[in-house]
Amino acid sequence: MTTAADPLLSIEGLSVTMPTPSGPVELVHRTDIEIGEGEIVGLAGESGSGKTMTASAIMGILPPGARAGGRIMFEGRDLLSLSRAELDTVRGNRIAIVFQDPSAALHPLLTIGTQLTEHLIHHKGVTKKQANARAVELLDLVRIRDPHHAVKAFPHQFSGGMRQRAAIAIALACEPRLLIADEPTTALDVTVQAGILRLFDRLARETGVSMLFITHDLGVMNSIADRTYVFKDGTVVESGVTTTILNEPSHEYTKALIASRAQSLAEERVQQEARP
């Protein structure tokens, strides 16, 4: 599925190690991932399999003490070899991330408007006024009602789903080439999850942004990702076109994941039918 041209992002032999009292532990082991222009790539696996560590390594936000090895090539540069100042010209600007829990990821004491515009002003050098106009546009883009009012609101005044929409708007503010979404629906109510997924899908089509979509939910993966990497114990065990993987899994682990997904789907259905 990768195009003939260089991929947008290519992770080569990434390892992440973390020091513990009983010696260093390797959380990600020699992982290769490629993301092409405009492509939506999924990372699947259970929690603790190294998906989030991979995303953190790309953004340079690994927990204190963790070390990353290998290369992460983006726009001709190895992100792992950049200084903090150089990396700061990339993250938030060329690559942005949406975290799992918008309630924790948004600053509680800053308005949505401030959080939408501060990196825009910093990276793009626009005026405050231009940034504010763009903020309203962005909120409209993510379908937040009454955006003029919403820019002045604080995160606690929003519902969970709206907070995640705002967080997505913040990530898109500088028109990044790559958007990383780390379990962006897991912390949300089941009822709003579908809306957020549709939003990602639509944004990808409208803006052409590439996406690295991380989830443990293969059903979600099926509805959004072109290609999928399946993670287990810090390494990729299977990769390919999403539908192929889901229909003809070659690795035992993938089969197990699909089975557990089927079971939880069945349970959900039983619960739904049980409701009056």
């Binding site: 936000i61 700061d88 938030g92 942005a96 501060e118 990196h119």
Partner: peptide
Amino acid sequence: RSAIAKGLP
């Protein structure tokens, strides 16, 4: 962490 990921100074 969000602020750092935004590349803010």
